[in-house]
Design a protein around this nucleic acid. Structure first.
Lengths: 334, 334
DNA sequence: GTGAAAGCGCTAACAG
DNA sequence: CTGTTAGCGCTTTCAC
């Protein structure tokens, strides 16, 4: 069994209080005593019990990270950013995968609450729970940070990419390259797709070429099937509307689907078709031709959310902050 | 603040013990009392404090998962398998990314020990810590399961793929398709690459065609650069040895690197070159042409490790088990 | 400088 | 069926 502070105290012939003081270094201890204790600690391989420590201190040294899935590299990349920040601190991360399911999301977050986590980061929160009072209530008692989620709660901090600007950059790029007939590919109802579609419509309107047929919704936008689904959809559409020469895809998975569709259709990229994706997941750089895309900087998304959460933990959940990150165009082969 | 059991007890006019019994349902309570308590629980939004509960029960409801990185989809996929199993239980997962760094690995695992985790799953443990007594000592007091790691410790359970058989399947497939000049691509020193190389050598020897020039080590095999690195290496080698008509790559990232090399070299797949990868990460299905590969079934790796850990937790860390999973060939376009 | 003792929130005998 | 009580391992007053 693991040694406890009592055993260390006995072996060192001091009180548990003294051992505690040595371990934490927060009160003066005679050097001699200190060394004696440290020696025993070493011998017994003693490490303080975090559970007990957190309990008495009325705090917690874990934070919860809730993600919809881990199958799209977008999420691991964000987690990476979060982890790299908290790694330097005393916090550990409890990972919760909630499968884009609003009930599971609720359950897992309640579980985190039971664990008295110091705070919670939610990536892509479901709109259901965002709109209901669920998150607002949680956020009143525990620091909560959203990544790419919509909230008007004054208690929730958030970090998101400025997808409106990003979409504009993507469309600008296509138009500057002379494309007028641009296909828009999106997934199921989500705030982030909506924003992009809004920009698409505005800009197509400006050149008097907005056509509903050029707007395609391929359903689930983040699954393992997204690429193939988009490819199949793309083959059909590209055949039906041969005048299309540019594509703006709401995420890279969809963008790659279109690349594959071109291969099947014997279209040359970028001669016959230019494609701009969104996110900049590594996958985009691995396929051939390499996907041109808008960089979301997932690592920064994660890192900033971690910073915001830490702030909230430190200010006692009193103040919130919203951060909007900029995007940038990553020019590659498509 | 969160309500405690004492507050619930007071409000319901019962003792804390009764509240505890209602919550846990482990002792009989009069229906009337039960309902009264449940009502207050609801009102006060009470959830038991896991920290305190774990402390008194001398147990923990968290398990630690240690991974080298989260940048290669292999690891998230395995984590997925682990999570899907523990999701149904009371356990939560603490995720530790240790960056393939043996010191970080040690630190993070010590931290997990401080948290009294119920058990630890380590994916791809560093050989350094595996060979030293570090893991053996940990495993004496806490259940430990390795995924794709080598250990002779009787206290460590492990699950791994039978990579020897897998390699044989890959090579068989290439040879059956008439290939004699087969390139072998591997990464830096690792047990798993060594196993595959051994098989490669044996089988090339059998057809009297083992040539050292056909064996390539591209260094880091799991990073974001692996694909491009392999591509560059591949372009050179494929040019130098135009007789090569088959490739066995130790993982899919490398396999995809070779696909890209073919594109640069204007080689047609699979007419000019057949490629077999290893792992079956989703990426292999997303690229075009789709990669033929050996399925490691990462989900099963994760799930089985979870089952083994649960067993160890339940049998008091007394018994260990090694599981070897079978592989299968996934025929696709290459 | 150091020890004794209270108590964090909870569970599990034990007694009734 | 229910209440009282003793801790789980630790930190932190409060004395000395």
């Amino acid at each position: 069994m693991k040694a406890t502070i009592v055993e260390v105290a006995k072996a060192a012939n001091v009180s548990v209080a003294t051992v505690s003081r040595v371990i934490n270094g927060n009160y003066p201890v005679k050097l001699e005593t200190k060394e004696k204790v440290l020696k025993i600690v070493e011998e017994l391989n003693y490490t303080p019990n975090t559970q007990a420590r957190d309990l008495i201190k009325q705090q917690s040294s874990t934070i919860g990270v809730v993600v919809p899935s881990i199958s799209n590299m977008f999420f691991p990349s964000v987690i990476n950013g979060i982890e790299s920040y908290f790694e330097k601190t005393e916090f550990s991360i409890i990972l919760c995968i909630m499968d884009s399911d609003k009930d599971k999301e609720k359950n897992r977050i309640n579980e985190l609450m039971s664990r008295n986590v110091a705070g919670i980061i939610v990536i892509d929160p479901t709109t259901e729970n965002s709109k209901s009072s669920f998150f607002n209530n949680i956020a009143k008692v525990t620091p909560v940070v959203f990544i790419n989620g919509y909230t008007n709660s004054p208690n929730i901090s958030s970090v998101a990419n400025d997808e409106e600007v990003g979409a504009r950059i993507a469309m600008d790029y296509l138009m500057e390259n002379g494309h007028k007939n641009i296909l828009f590919i999106r997934g199921e109802k989500s705030y982030s797709y909506d924003v992009k579609e809004k920009v698409y419509r505005e800009m197509m309107n400006e050149i008097n070429n907005l056509k509903e047929e050029y707007i395609v919704n391929i359903g689930k936008g983040n699954s393992a099937q997204t690429v193939n689904q988009t490819m199949e959809e793309g083959i059909k559409i590209l055949n039906s509307y041969p005048e299309i020469s540019g594509v703006f895809a709401c995420n890279d998975l969809m963008g790659i689907g279109i690349i594959n569709a071109c291969k099947k259709n014997n279209k040359i990229i970028p001669k016959d078709l230019s494609i701009v994706g969104y996110d900049n997941i590594e996958l985009g750089e691995m396929v051939e031709p390499k996907l041109t895309t808008i960089d979301q900087n997932m690592f920064l998304l994660g890192e900033n959310s971690a910073i915001l959460l830490k702030e909230k933990i430190e200010n006692g959940n009193k103040y919130s902050k919203k951060i909007l990150l900029n995007n940038s165009l990553i020019k590659r082969d498509t």
